[in-house]
């Protein structure tokens, strides 16, 4: 009668220990800060894309594998949304301290007509010298953007400096394997972004 209890209880105990271990290791969302962005689960492999870096060299998204990559689609004439987001990303990276070295922020221009890769790089460097700015031809950029749920479109209504470009302001976070893991809406604070990046770094 008692003989079956021990293996059953033993295996349940093991299950319990594994569960507790998983919680302790941060695999389960128990006892940890809620993620502010939206988690893609399971992480979504995205097709690799070749874009152009400053200096005209071909850069692939897979070049950044091993780091957590925060991708932002913006442009240098962008009046408000882009500078706000890039400044928040820069502060979030600083807040991570040493662990911030494992985070790579990449801005891909949605206005390649005016933003050469050099201009894009120079622009993002002003926010943080480690940020990378990428450009390329518009068809290639649109392909990458569309697949990540990002749309952009040149607007006819102009500002003083010419035209504006409407674009999705979401930040996309790839995990160390280069898979899409997290989407951050526009408007998160630097602290919230830092929390979310910390979570992806732990994965």
């Amino acid at each position: 009668m008692r003989r079956w209890i021990i293996p059953v209880a033993g295996s349940l105990l093991i299950l319990l220990l594994v569960g507790a271990g998983a919680v302790a290791a941060g695999w389960l969302p128990v006892g940890r800060d809620t993620v502010h962005g939206s988690v893609i689960d399971p992480p979504l492999p995205i097709p690799d894309a070749t874009l152009t870096g400053a200096g005209g060299d071909a850069r692939q998204l897979s070049d950044f594998r091993g780091k957590v990559v925060a991708i932002y689609f913006g442009y240098t004439y962008c009046p408000d949304v882009c500078p706000t987001t890039l400044a928040a990303l820069a502060r979030a990276k600083q807040a991570l301290g040493k662990r911030g070295d494992d985070v790579q922020v990449v801005m891909i221009t949605v206005d390649p007509e005016r933003d050469t890769p050099e201009i894009t790089q120079e622009y993002v460097s002003r926010f943080d010298p480690t940020f990378v700015g990428l450009g390329g031809d518009v068809a290639r950029i649109r392909q990458v953007a569309t697949g990540m749920g990002v749309y952009f479109e040149k607007q006819q209504r102009g500002s003083a400096g010419g035209y504006l470009v409407d674009h999705t302001a979401t930040v996309l976070v790839l995990d160390r394997n280069g898979d899409l893991r997290l989407m951050l809406p526009y408007g998160l604070t630097a602290e919230q972004i830092a929390d979310d990046l910390r979570w992806v770094l732990k994965q």
Binding site: V39, L44, T146, G147, M148, G149, Y151, F152, E153, L180
Partner: peptide, 20 residues
């Protein structure tokens, strides 16, 4: 959560912009 839906700008039946 399967995948991000694509970003797009379309035109609807009234000729209005419809974006993601």
């Amino acid at each position: 959560r399967i995948a991000p839906a694509p970003g797009f700008a379309l035109t609807d039946q009234e000729g209005q912009r419809l974006t993601s």
